[in-house]
Design a protein around this nucleic acid. Structure first.
Length: 1010
RNA sequence: GGGCCAUUAGCUCAGUUGGUUAGAGCACAGUCCUGAUAAGACUGGGGUCUGUGGUUCGAGUCCACAAUGGCCCA
């Protein structure tokens, strides 16, 4: 006996029971261990930040990872998998700063790094409970108890080891380069961080500044009035740092005369400015202007700011004071004629192009802004934040007559992705990994990776690699893996340390506390003796980019190479599969690929599913500020995890942006899960009535319909296996949907009578065997997709009747298709039958004859003998479905010609179907009998009878019904399980109803037979 | 400015290597079926397959350009 199934199922509640079953019986652990002897399939879990509530997109990623890994497990692969958490980095620090009400680094220093980092450590797992709850609730199987954390000493030590490998290859260097700098966070940002913070329509000043020429070069410039070079900028605060002006050597410039002086700017851009008070004097070539000397707007020496100068090797040295300081016009290919004046203000301290020009041409270098973004020196605007200094500088220049015009402009400008402060481009020293040295290797490695969707390989990821720049991997922050680089106070030598042991064994090593903690400030306190001069080695203050942490995850999660060396080298050193959202192309996907190419010279993942964003119902990005964020837990509690999972798998392929609407999840329940559930409940209901006991193996089916559904089933298994093997869970899922629809609306619909009839014959057994096979196979096919529903069905259909079966569907193997049962002819035949039925129903609809009224003849057009034979094979199905006595085949012309009285004809896509509409007395009587049966069935239900209860029928009918009742007594009795039909209604019946059929009265009553 | 992706019914999506009259579900209306089905069937309205060119006997599908939206880079 199977456990009775209620067709009013509460999926969310049921899922919770199953979660408990899995936990109590450690099914996840068993599912992994059971495959211990199988081939390894390596999956890496990318570490999320657990410092916010998980969102619907996290459910998406986890669901996708799960379906693949569960599938592979069922295919016999051994896949231990542990969760991970990204615990370092700016987001954590900012959260703590917010808590403490801080707004900058000096406050942290004052507060104390030790205490601050302690708070960071505590803050990291604030939302861990929510994350773990979500993870378990959606049925994502991953080892949460042994999750790796990037802040663990073992993890950090592996990261150190990794950096040391790169160091030893000579690929770590300290460079003086212009980096995007957040003045609030006080740190450089990596390019992938910058890219997250661009804002369109940022309003900035747009100012035109006059630089006074003091010594001309080749251009014959007038001397009667001052001559000014006109430059344009959107960042007035960089003007004190100006050390050159650049022109395009091949462009044409004009000299304009005004009342109080001359102006020089590009000819092409002169028209974009209001210069009606000026008149053109002559044209100049850009080349002629190169070398022209001009007066600085602010001579740094007069404002207490140091002036440095580039040497050929790129180093900078301080310069002597000079009262008559002049700068020169240079030629630059970066000067465009698209905006501005064609004369570019160059400040090497504040722009990459400017810096490179400075290095190349040996320009002066003036840095009058500190790392907090405040102006230094003794300018009138000193001490102000750069943006606040802008108007003051403009006023100052206005007063001195050097500001020609000022306005505002809207453009795209980068802001800090976390704290929203405007980024400043700022030249400073920082640590780099020379990834450009392995660019070709990374590109070659990418060729071997399978991306889903495929275009990521050449597109997003490929482009990113092509444009590779060295990785600025250090952060001037507190909570992160400290850079294991020590510097000698005396001789300036650097040493990189690759392990705790190495550090401890350094000569004169001091300051290691016990137990050791590899974080700041403890590591800052560790010193040792310089290997070169014996001086004191002090750690450089930076911590590492947290992308370096997460990219080290393949080996650091198991403390490689200090532990598990063989495991990693031989088995887990390369992932077969990873998956995250598309924003990780420049994040985790890149850091994994870069680090692995640096360390091992090969790619570290073979297959990657790259998911797209989830938008709200209107196609807008979900964000807290818009209030359109969907809480996944709410969705699950209402509709269930299986439905949400299914939505993620089948609503669109991985590479497509999807609009999330909770209505779609509800629809999945109605359409797919409830349909399947009802087939299942139908089966269990009748199987229990007939005491059906599935045998260990079934004989081949004899009925065409059974052969058909098993053919479809095996085709489905083959398709799903093939598609999932290629990571195409979307199409595989959609095929399951189609199958379930066919199973319910064709197979079961056309087989109902076989289960209902009273004899326990071979045909009935065949029907049970076939449907049982379908349901059990479906449970296994669905196990990776909807693990809860699959488990529920499996427990009842398999475990209830076979005690030696595996404890859970998730310990089963993935089904194997029996291709010998696949018969394309059967598939075609049934498709034809469905089509004819559809046309037949249309024909009935057209003439208003309901299915319950039997008809005499169905004509179907055929074009050849082949079709005629196919129709003959499926004729019984069609005739029963359409309730027609006889099927005749004819040519298209003949059937189409039946469009006359007594026929209803419908034609579609070259097939014509016609039904005879003439109703004989006999047909009418049978129709009435069916109508009565229908009413009686409804009464049985209303009376609350069990499906197998036998009844007695009583009637009190007009003469109109007599023939129908007497002529079809056996039929009525059989259909309604009536032992008797009597034509008088006694008092003690269970239910009595008055009916009206065709205008005639009919009183019916039913009584249960005890 | 550059790259990638998308655009098919009111909504969510299919549409194989180019090949009859472009499909499904949801929603809407009407009718029907039903002792498994809170399901289903039939009919109807609703499509210049974003646009313009091109290749071809034939284009939703291939090519070019453009528009719109999204993502990424600068």
């Amino acid at each position: 006996m199977f456990k009775p199934v209620n067709n009013r199922v509460d999926f969310p509640k049921q899922e919770e029971d199953i979660l408990k079953f899995w936990k109590d019986n450690t099914i996840f652990e068993k599912s992994v261990d059971a495959r211990k002897d199988g081939k390894r399939f390596v999956f890496y879990e990318g570490p999320p930040f657990a410092n916010g509530n998980p969102g619907i997109h996290h459910v998406l990623a986890r669901a996708i990872k799960d379906v693949i890994v569960r599938y592979k497990t069922m295919k016999g692969y051994y896949i231990p998998r542990i969760a991970g958490w990204d615990t370092h980095g700016l987001p954590v620090e900012l959260e703590v700063e917010r808590q403490l009400g801080f707004s900058g680094k000096d406050q942290i220093e004052k507060y104390g790094v030790e205490e601050f980092n302690k708070k960071c450590r505590e803050s990291v797992f604030k939302y861990l409970k929510e994350w773990n709850f979500m993870t378990e609730r959606i049925g994502y199987w991953v080892d949460l108890d042994h999750a790796y954390k990037t802040m663990d000493n073992t993890y950090v030590e592996s990261v150190w080891w990794a950096l040391k490998q790169i160091w030893d290859k000579g690929l770590v260097y300290q460079g003086y380069r212009v980096t995007p700098h957040c003045p609030r966070c006080g740190t450089s940002l990596s390019s992938h961080e910058v890219s997250q913070g661009y804002k369109d329509d940022t309003e900035d000043p747009s100012v035109y500044i006059k630089f006074r020429v003091v010594k001309e070069a080749k251009a014959k410039l007038p001397t009667n009035k001052p001559v000014y070079l006109l430059a344009w900028t959107t960042t007035p605060w960089t003007l004190p740092g100006n050390t050159a002006l650049a022109v395009a050597p091949d462009a044409e410039y004009v000299l304009l005369e005004g009342e109080n002086g001359y102006l020089i700017l590009a000819a092409r851009l002169a028209g974009t400015l209001d210069l009606k008070d000026y008149q053109e004097v002559k044209k100049l070539n850009g080349k002629e202007l190169v070398g022209t000397e001009y007066q600085p707007l602010y001579n740094p020496h007069e404002f207490g700011v140091e002036r440095l100068k580039f040497h050929h090797d790129g180093t900078l040295t301080a310069q002597k004071e000079s009262k008559d300081l002049t700068y020169k016009v240079i030629g630059g290919d970066f000067v465009t004629m698209e905006d501005g004046t064609g004369i570019v203000h160059v400040a090497p301290a504040f722009g990459e192009v400017d810096f490179n020009a400075g290095k190349e041409l040996g320009l002066s270098f003036v840095q009058q802004v500190d790392l907090q973004g405040k102006i230094t020196g003794n300018y009138s605007f000193a001490g102000k934040f750069v943006k606040a200094a802008d108007p003051l500088i403009m006023d100052d220049l206005q007063e001195r007559g050097l500001l020609l015009h000022s306005g505002t402009i809207k453009h795209t400008y980068p802001f800090c992705w976390r704290c929203d402060a405007p980024l400043l481009y700022y030249a400073k020293t920082t640590w780099y990994i020379k990834t450009t040295a392995i660019k070709d290797k990374m590109i070659a490695g990418n060729e071997t990776i399978n991306w889903y969707p495929e275009h990521i390989k050449k597109g997003r990821f490929g482009n990113w690699l092509e444009n590779n720049v060295d990785w600025a991997f250090a952060r001037e922050r507190y909570w992160g893996s400290p850079l294991p680089i020590w510097k000698c106070e005396k001789c300036g030598a650097f040493e990189c340390v690759g392990s705790i042991e190495e550090l401890e064994k350094k000569p004169g090593c001091q300051g290691i506390k016990s137990p050791i903690d590899l974080h700041r400030p403890y590591m800052d306190e560790v010193t040792f003796n310089c290997g070169k001069c014996g001086g004191k080695m002090q750690r450089t203050p930076e911590v590492m980019d947290c992308w370096f942490d997460s990219g080290s995850m393949p080996f650091a999660q198991t403390h490689y190479p200090f532990e598990n060396k063989e495991l990693f080298d031989k088995e887990t050193g390369q992932a077969d599969f990873i998956s995250e959202a598309v924003d990780q192309t420049r994040g985790w996907f890149y850091s994994l690929h870069a680090i692995s190419t640096l360390l091992f010279g090969r790619p570290i993942f073979k297959n990657c599913i790259c998911l797209e964003l989830i938008l709200d119902t209107k196609g807008k990005k979900m964000s807290k500020s818009k209030g359109n964020v969907v809480d996944p837990i709410e969705v699950i509690q209402k509709h269930g995890a299986d439905a949400l999972r299914w939505y993620n798998y089948t609503s669109s392929p991985p590479g497509a942006v999807r609009r999330f609407d909770v209505k779609m999840v509800a629809e999945i329940n109605r359409q797919l899960l409830m349909t399947l559930w009802n087939v299942y409940s139908f089966f269990v209901m009748y199987a229990n009535i007939d005491h059906y006991q599935p045998a260990d193996s079934f004989p081949p089916p004899s009925t065409e319909l059974d052969k058909w559904i098993l053919s479809e089933l095996n085709q489905l298994v083959a398709d799903c296996d093939n598609l999932l093997e290629n990571y195409n869970y979307t199409d595989a899922g959609r095929k399951i949907e189609t199958f379930v629809d066919g199973l319910s609306n064709w197979y079961v619909r056309r087989s109902r009578r076989r289960f209902w009839k009273s004899e326990n014959d071979e045909d009935k057994l065949s029907a049970y065997n076939s449907l049982y096979t379908c349901l059990v196979t479906l449970a296994k096919l669905l196990a990776p997709y909807t693990p809860f529903l699959a488990e529920e069905m499996y427990q009842n259909l398999v475990r209830e009747v076979k005690q030696d079966a595996p404890l859970s569907v998730h310990l089963e193997d993935f089904p194997v298709a029996d291709t010998s049962l696949i018969d394309k002819q059967l598939s075609d035949d049934n498709r034809l039958a469905m089509k004819v039925c559809s046309l037949g129903r249309a024909a009935r609809n057209k003439c208003g004859l309901k299915i319950r009224q039997p008809l005499e003849t169905l004509y179907v057009s055929v074009t050849n003998e082949f079709e005629a034979r196919a129709l003959e094979r499926v004729a019984p199905l069609i005739l029963e479905e359409l309730n027609i006595k006889e099927l005749k085949t004819e040519t298209l012309e003949k059937v189409g010609g039946l469009e006359v009285a007594n026929f209803s004809t419908v034609t579609e896509m070259g097939t014509c179907v016609s039904i005879s509409t003439y109703i004989t007395i006999e047909l009418q009587a049978e129709g009435i009998a069916r109508e009565i049966i229908h009413r009686l069935q409804t009464m049985r239900r209303n009376a609350g009878y069990e499906i197998a209860d036998h009844i007695k029928i009583y009637h009190d009918a007009d003469a109109y019904f007599i023939q129908a009742i007497s002529g079809f007594t056996d039929y009525i009795r059989q259909e309604t399980l009536a032992d008797d039909i009597e034509d008088d209604i006694p008092e003690d019946v269970d239910l009595k109803e008055e009916h009206k059929i065709g205008g005639y009265h009919l009183n019916l009553a039913v009584k249960k037979v005890k």
